[in-house]
């Protein structure tokens, strides 16, 4: 029985090896070598791609990538939590419809969505047309960081709403009634019960928004108008324009490590919150 189950896992292991482990090893291999990748004998070991990264030029790009990703993630949380809360509190029969409404963007092509925002935000776009109609001065946010952040929020908000909604809807109604029974009004119930219990959803949401936001290159290219270079664009350029796979690989590895470190910190926060004492100091 046990062996049969193990057998079933083999295809998955092979799949993982081919599509995840081998490409990762290749990327790592390129990042520590130089020479012609089509001629294996010309490759030699080097760390120069990593040392090249420690240049203000590139450090600034990574700083900007993290800054914009953090801003977008925080705004997604601020917008997404109330949305998830309202959906979870709404009547059962309205719930799936409301949820669908907020998740609909996921079902549309990513590029298409971002182009749609170009049409809205561009100097001659819908937004400025509307402002003009009301006799207001036009605003120029595209191309620029504001537009990039807006694009990120629009694209990634569902990934914040969904996990938070999931944990909120799983909270036992009896637990909330128990809080009311013990004298808690709805505000105290929210602060002391609902919010702490939804931390796992918040952590997942932050992870799921932050990761794609920090590594995006499409949003920054389309809504940043080529001026707002992010780490994702930098990597993309190494592979497509400059044909420097080695430096591109090194940048990918660095980004991956930084994301892993951020995630480790996040999960630490989550675990701490689940510790015995945890929340008591919170209120």
């Amino acid at each position: 029985m046990k062996n049969r189950a193990k057998l079933l896992a083999y295809p998955y292991i092979v799949w993982m090896a081919i599509f995840i482990v081998i490409p990762l090893l290749l990327v790592f291999f390129y990042s520590i070598t130089s020479g012609n990748i089509y001629e294996p004998s010309s490759l030699s070991f080097t760390l120069e791609h990593y040392s090249k990264f420690f240049d203000m030029l590139y450090l600034n790009v990574i700083w900007k990538s993290f800054r914009l990703a953090i801003i977008s993630t925080v705004l997604c949380l601020v917008l997404g939590y109330p949305v998830a809360y309202i959906i979870s509190k709404s009547k059962q029969k309205h719930r799936s419809l409301l949820l669908l409404f907020f998740l609909l963007p996921i079902w549309m092509n990513f590029l298409l969505r971002t182009y749609a925002w170009m049409a809205i935000l561009s100097p001659n776009g819908f937004l400025n047309k509307a402002l003009e109609f009301f006799g207001l001065p036009p605003i120029e946010i595209m191309p620029g960081q504001t537009a990039v952040v807006l694009g990120m929020i629009y694209n990634f908000l569902p990934f914040m709403v969904l996990p938070i909604y999931t944990v909120l809807s799983k909270i036992d109604k009896n637990v909330l009634e128990a809080a009311a029974d013990l004298g808690a009004n709805s505000f105290i119930t929210f602060i002391k019960i609902i919010l702490p219990l939804s931390v796992p959803g918040i952590v997942t949401g932050i992870t799921m928004v932050f990761m794609p936001a920090v590594s995006t290159f499409v949003i920054s290219r389309l809504l940043g108008g080529g001026k707002e270079l992010l780490i994702g664009n930098l990597i993309e350029q190494q592979f497509t324009i400059y044909r420097d796979w080695h430096f591109g690989s090194a940048l990918s590895i660095i980004l991956m490590i930084m994301i892993l470190v951020s995630m480790a910190i996040m999960s630490k926060v989550d675990n701490n919150n689940n510790d015995d004492e945890g929340r008591t100091a919170m209120w």
Binding site: D172, N174, E177, A178, P196, L197, N274, D276, G278, R279
Partner: peptide, 11 residues
């Protein structure tokens, strides 16, 4: 309550 409804995030 029938199923205790304890606060699982507290000791």
């Amino acid at each position: 309550f029938q199923r205790y409804a304890l606060f699982t995030h507290m000791n």
